[in-house]
Design a protein around this nucleic acid. Structure first.
Length: 685
RNA sequence: GCGCGUGUAGCUCAGUUGGAUAGAGCGCUCGCCUCCUAAGCGAGAGGUCCCCGGUUCAAAUCCGGGCACGCGUACCA
């Protein structure tokens, strides 16, 4: 890990700037530390002299030279140079650096070096409507969400993972309508169907048919409204059927996600928010302080609304330069004001999604003064209980395991696609206007763009998308049944990986082959989902996603497997394991690591060490593709090393040992990086 | 209309809170398995970083103004 070195460097430079120029730490520029483009420039570099040039009225080059001369020795640093252009370049003690990384795995120095607050954080992700199978759009959400969770945990932040289940919404109601009105099924009949395999696929098709059924006669939308009302109020067979459907579909989703190494601590059911009067409590608070009021006239008459403030920071800059056109009449202003009101409670008394979510968000932050009851819903991947909220007070007593203290977080991340940015802004504003300024600041909407299909892939899957011919890609639509189901995609990936694994490893047996193929498929899919920056629409192309070459998850795995194989053979031929290599380094001849001819070997070590720096950067920027790109670059660097420098066939013992040490460090770091993306290193490929 | 996002190689995309010669994957051309696995490696061709102006030692990156595309702006979520 490299961050401790950064910190030591900053401390020394800051002290020197103080003693040399009388600059107090708070007057100093941010001491940016970069990786120079070429190794001959150094291992780390800082351009601080450029920033100080103006203030000190000196050439950057002179400042750099003075600071370097006064710097004194720094632990782990071999030498510091002032470059002719003004950069300050730092050269590390290579051998000492590598040995320290190998023997001192991580946790200790990681906690020292990061300014990230290590307080309870809730990450909400997945939140698929429980009325149909999961598709690739959902996969982007849960892959990003789970990677974010792993990243936070890697950085030492305690995380609680929640999956919000909208069991009382329109989408579940639609499937109930399908069963009752299109198929004429009773509750018992639906129960029987739900027990069969692929209930989520069944509902996928039914849901699409319901959409068509509405379209054929708009009057049928009244059926939906009635059904939704019944579900919200827990009345009759519709409510029971809705509950049954949601419960079974959620289990389907959990199975799908478990295949991708994704799971949760708690399922929060929207129905419980209603039944336990979370909303009523939140509404009370909002109404009392005036955040929400009853609109008595106009378009929204009879609704409880919340006024949406303009961004307070935007006010200043809005000064109009010249005379505004006078035709902006006052009537339009009124319209605009009205448009800036968001309905929280409809005139028929039902609560919108925003309302329910406000209550949920209050609870997450420990501001509601109420709590759910809990039940054990299933078991997690590791065998621990997966909890769900419930309205049943008695449920607590049934469990064997003590119920953890859910909610009451210091910070939250809501992983929700960018189309809901407006709603998420409202949520934050609700917190803010209630005086919970800090909580509002610590509520983060992790927004990402949607997944669409390329035209080629849509055609290949047999969809008629001629109506979207003029658009750059084809939008996925659960409502129309247009999309790639997560399990189908994963099955195809496994099948393809299995072919390749079987060809290369005929001798290892079918079960091992299948296990490896699954690991490869997961890495392929999850890497694909995080390698794009989050505000880029993914035009999903089946052939591209099925590729195991180039910038892909399997490429990363392959590089790790190569390193693994070297250690297998080292053990087999020379009886050396990782510990033995480490122990032997103390006396080993270092020339394999020193000098310009070893720059590329050393470069790999340096890159390996940057995982902590990249992890922190990825979290700060909320850009998980940084992690993906880093891991890919690391694998590339190792593959280059692998081809240029032999280990097993290297006759000089010193070179062999140091290179083996480099491979060991690489394997350690690439394994961690893959794990952050929910992927494993296969035993072989 | 307003708000947010995007625009970089033939295609898909990176480009680290402004920094050293603008990169990767795919595709294309050529080369590398007697040697730790070729799911790999190397070489080559390929650029008006959407356009115009500004800020400064330095701009693909920041600011202003345009253009194009996407999303949002619901008593849906």
């Amino acid at each position: 890990m490299i961050l401790p070195v950064h910190h030591a460097l900053r401390r020394h430079v800051a002290a020197t700037l103080t003693s040399l120029y009388g600059l107090a730490p708070e007057d100093q520029p941010a001491l940016t530390i970069e990786v120079p483009p070429q190794r001959r420039f150094g291992d780390l570099a800082s351009p601080f002299a450029f920033e100080l040039a103006r203030r000190l009225r000196k050439a950057p080059r002179a400042i750099a030279a003075e600071v370097v001369a006064a710097l004194g020795p720094i632990e782990g640093v071999a030498r510091v140079e002032a470059a002719p252009n003004g950069y300050v370049n730092v050269f590390l003690d290579r051998a000492a650096f590598l040995r320290a990384r190998l023997s001192n795995p991580d946790a200790a120095d990681r906690s020292l070096s990061s300014p990230i607050p290590r307080e309870k954080t809730i990450v909400e992700h997945t939140a698929i409507n429980p009325n149909k199978a999961a598709h690739i759009g959902h996969l982007r959400n849960s892959s990003l969400g789970d990677t974010l969770v792993r990243l936070l945990r890697f950085l030492g932040v305690p995380v609680e993972v929640q999956n919000y289940i909208d069991d009382t919404g329109v989408q579940v109601a639609d499937v109930v309508v399908g069963f009752q009105h299109l198929e004429g099924k009773s509750l018992d009949e639906v129960r029987a169907i739900a027990r069969e395999a692929r209930f989520d696929y069944y509902c996928w098709d039914l849901y699409a048919r319901v959409t068509e059924w509405y379209e054929a006669d708009k009057a049928r939308l009244q059926v939906r409204a009635d059904t939704l009302h019944a579900i919200e109020h827990g009345e009759g067979e519709a409510a029971a059927m809705g509950h049954l459907i949601a419960e079974h579909i959620v289990r389907c989703h959990l199975r799908t996600m478990a295949r991708l190494n994704i799971d949760y601590d708690l399922l929060t059911w929207e129905g419980d928010i209603l039944r336990l009067h979370f909303w009523a409590t939140a509404f009370d608070i909002l109404r009392k302080n005036g955040s929400v009021f009853l609109q008595e006239e106009g378009r929204l008459k009879g609704c409880w609304v919340m006024r949406i403030d303009e961004d307070p920071t935007a006010g200043e800059a809005a000064g109009t330069p010249d005379a505004m056109p006078a035709d902006a009449v006052s009537g339009e202003d009124v319209d605009e004001a009205e448009q800036r009101e968001k309905v929280i409670v409809r005139s028929n008394g039902t609560v919108t999604y925003v309302g329910k979510d406000i209550a949920y968000q209050f609870w997450k932050m420990g501001l509601l003064g109420r709590d759910f009851h809990y039940r054990e819903f299933a078991r997690r991947i590791d065998g621990a209980p997966l909890w769900a909220t419930t309205s049943d007070e008695g449920a607590l007593r049934g469990g064997v395991d003590p119920v953890p203290a859910f909610g009451g977080a210091h910070a939250t991340y809501n992983v929700i696609d960018t189309r809901q940015t407006y709603l998420q802004k409202l949520l934050k504003q609700a917190l803010f206007t209630m005086g919970h300024r800090l909580e509002a600041e610590r509520s983060t909407h992790f927004a990402y763009e949607m997944v669409a299909l390329t035209h080629a892939t849509a055609r290949e899957l047999g969809y008629d998308v001629s109506d979207q011919a003029d658009r750059p890609f084809v939008e996925v639509s659960g409502r129309k049944g247009l999309g790639v189901k997560a399990d189908d995609l994963l099955d195809r990936l496994i099948e393809k990986a299995l072919e390749e694994v079987g060809r290369r490893n005929a001798e290892i047996g079918a079960e091992a082959q299948r296990r490896i193929a699954r690991q490869i498929a997961v890495a392929a899919l999850r890497y694909f989902m995080v390698k794009f920056t989050r505000n880029k629409v993914i035009a999903f192309d089946i052939d591209e996603a099925l590729s195991f070459e180039g910038e892909s998850g399997p490429y990363l795995q392959y590089s790790a497997v190569r390193a693994q194989n070297i250690f297998g053979k080292l053990k087999e031929r020379l009886g050396l394991d990782k510990a033995a290599v480490e122990a032997a380094l103390a006396d080993a001849e270092r020339s394999a690591l020193e000098g310009p001819e070893a720059d590329d070997v050393w470069d790999l070590v340096l890159q390996c060490s940057r995982l902590d720096e990249v992890a922190e950067q990825a979290l700060r920027a909320l850009e998980l593709s940084l992690l993906a790109k880093y891991a890919f670059g690391l694998a590339q660097a190792f593959n280059g090393f692998y081809h240029r420098h032999q280990i097993l066939n290297e006759p000089r013992e010193g070179a062999r040992l140091w290179r083996a040490a480099v491979a060991a460090y690489f394997l350690e770091q690439i394994t961690r990086a893959l794990d952050l993306m929910g992927s494993a290193v296969p035993e072989r490929m």
